[in-house]
């Protein structure tokens, strides 16, 4: 049980620490990064760059492993089709990200930084997710 639950807890904790340290739990900084044509703040490019470099290395190890360290098998996405749903959904997500400077990870992590504001965002986000499920059935 602990062997199974500890990796996701540790992963989430590292993730939340990284978000806070990198400034992503501050919507002002995120909107500053998106303000490319105004007073641009490039900090987020360093956050994404650092994360992508580490993960690119991890992806080099993954095919050489018969199974994950603490699980029986890998369960990874393998789709490559570009759909209107993917692009339209990502566009809508981008609009929401731009409006408040929050995406799902920082929204949840910020529950301990600015609880009331973060909770409003997270509840609305879950409501939006639920709306998609209502209209489309289980996914």
């Amino acid at each position: 049980m602990i062997r199974r639950l500890l990796p996701p807890l540790l992963s989430g904790t590292l993730f939340g620490a990284g978000l806070a340290l990198g400034g992503m739990t501050n919507p002002a900084r995120v909107r500053g990064f998106l303000d490319l044509f105004g007073d641009w703040d490039p900090t987020l490019a360093f956050v994404m760059g650092g994360a992508v470099i580490v993960m690119a290395i991890a992806w080099r190890f993954q095919p050489r492993m018969a199974h994950p360290l603490f699980a029986p098998k890998f369960a990874l996405p393998d789709r490559s089709d570009l759909t209107a749903r993917l692009i339209g959904g990502s566009a809508l997500f981008g609009i929401g990200w731009g409006i408040a400077g929050l995406c799902p990870g920082p929204g949840v992590a910020a529950l301990v930084i600015e609880p009331a504001s973060a909770a409003i965002f997270v509840v609305a986000m879950l409501a939006g997710m639920f709306l998609v499920r209502l209209t489309e059935g289980n996914g």
Partner: peptide, 14 residues
């Protein structure tokens, strides 16, 4: 926050 949250929720599922 409400408008953004709804857009992020719907958008990330789609």
């Amino acid at each position: 926050l409400v408008i953004a949250g709804l857009a992020v929720g719907v958008g990330t599922r789609l």
